[in-house]
Design a protein around this nucleic acid. Structure first.
Lengths: 257, 257
DNA sequence: CGCGTGGTTGACACGGATCAATCGTGGTGG
DNA sequence: CCACCACGATTGATCCGTGTCAACCACGCG
């Protein structure tokens, strides 16, 4: 039924439950620290060299093995956290843990740029899905830099504003759209257009379907049914982890807006 | 049109649908511009006088009548918006509109501090529920101030970080908690402790129940049933718009966390 | 080969939405 | 002053979307 798979998965404390998930072609396993330059660009949108120098001065790069707890709801956040390389999941460790992921991240991306500004606890936990390179920026050290580089302040504001925007629509969709609409939306947002056929597009599932379901706030069973029912309608074609969108406009209509 | 409350409700384009909603005792009708000083404090957490002066220099205060559209998903946001006085609702104007509120604000509070930093459209619409005093800060004018007052950057970051935190938990709760749990949570967050009885607390509903339901992502019918079913369990006592929490610990248990 | 993991499928239960009728209340116009 | 009307809230009946539970398939690894 599927071609690309590869099991494994456990770990000691944390049931890691990563496996068989198709790798994105470019990135191989393990952690390979990209030129810091490009990391900072991805995180902050091309800051000036002087800014990067100062940031390097206060940032600690911390390599961590898969399964590590990167962020905990029970410890006050004093640092901004970013993922320089590797994959991680944000979610909530419920009691003993089956860790319940709500969002997965990869590559250079902010992990938590907000909590450190508040006094208190983060709203989520985070665990490393692969070996990762974590960037740690103490808020206390970052603050003086804002004075020296107002540009940096603007970029940080942009990061948070983007997140506010995104979370707002997530909350809205959870309230007002059903699972099919949310999934149609997800498909469109993750599709790459096909040059030759305007109504078609490709979607490659980089995560386990179970994790995609979690992002959408549904169960794996429901996602499976959605895939089948959309392909019965002729809107998509599913072959394992490769999905072809056959009718983009119709999908957009279902996504509702 | 209203004594500020009054019935009415319709209006031409926009079905205003506000009425009978119990007023918070302190605030009387109409708009009375508070000393700007206190407004800025509420918005930014006590900025220095020099900062306030500069902000006053670029901010425009715009009085608007009830029913005004304060923010539209279809116009790019170039300004940060704050409510200096009055009530407003954030939500989505669906097609022709029954305007669907998702969150209501009052008094001095940020209306949209995020969209202006991004290039694009806000994620929500906003309408004035009462006559309001709107504070408008053009992003282009605000940006130079960040250089002069790094303190200001920090305060804006704090505003956005708070919102990220709040939206994150909202999204989480929508995914994982049922209506009863979310409502129990809401009750606790809006309750004022009673000095004499530790297990009790008071909640005054300042909005129509229908709007509270909208915030929780449920229908008014369901909210009504929740109120009844919690009072049958002896956890609360409902008299119109006054709710007495009788068993805070039990409510906390239902809220689940 | 058997086991563990991930996915699919079906039967079923349940939370909440929807639809519809009723009550209460405050403002309005004759 | 009262009858009426509009809006909000409440209640009951019913429907539908998803979660839950359980069985089963497929694949890769030890």
């Amino acid at each position: 039924m599927d071609t690309n798979i590869a099991s494994n998965g456990v770990a000691h404390g944390v049931p890691l439950r990563r496996a068989m998930r198709p790798r994105s072609p470019g990135r191989t396993a393990g952690l390979r620290v990209p030129a810091s330059r490009s990391v900072w660009s991805a995180l902050l949108g091309d800051p000036a060299p002087a800014v990067i120098d100062d940031l390097e001065g206060i940032a600690a790069a911390r390599p961590l093995p898969a399964g590590s707890l990167l962020l905990s709801r029970h410890e006050p956040a004093r640092e901004l956290l970013a993922l320089a390389a590797g994959d991680a999941a944000l979610g909530v460790a419920h009691g003993d843990l089956p860790f319940q992921p709500e969002r997965t991240l990869q590559g250079p991306q902010w992990l938590d740029a907000a909590s450190a500004w508040l006094g208190g606890m983060p709203a989520q936990d985070a665990v490393a899905l692969s070996d990762v390179q974590l960037l740690v920026l103490p808020r206390a050290a970052l603050q003086p830099l804002l004075a020296r580089h107002p540009e940096l302040a603007r970029q940080l504001l942009l990061v948070l504003a983007r997140q506010v925007h995104q979370l707002t629509t997530v909350a809205h969709d959870l309230m007002h759209k059903d699972a099919e609409a949310r999934f149609a939306d997800w498909l469109m947002q993750h599709s790459v257009a096909l040059a030759d056929a305007p109504k078609r597009a490709l979607v490659t599932l980089h995560e386990r379907k179970r994790d995609i379901a979690a992002q959408l706030g549904i169960t794996p069973e429901t996602l499976s049914r959605l895939l089948r029912q959309l392909s019965r309608k002729g809107l998509i074609e599913v072959k394992g982890y490769a999905v072809t969108v056959l009718d983009l406009p119709a999908l957009r209509a279902i996504a509702g807006a």
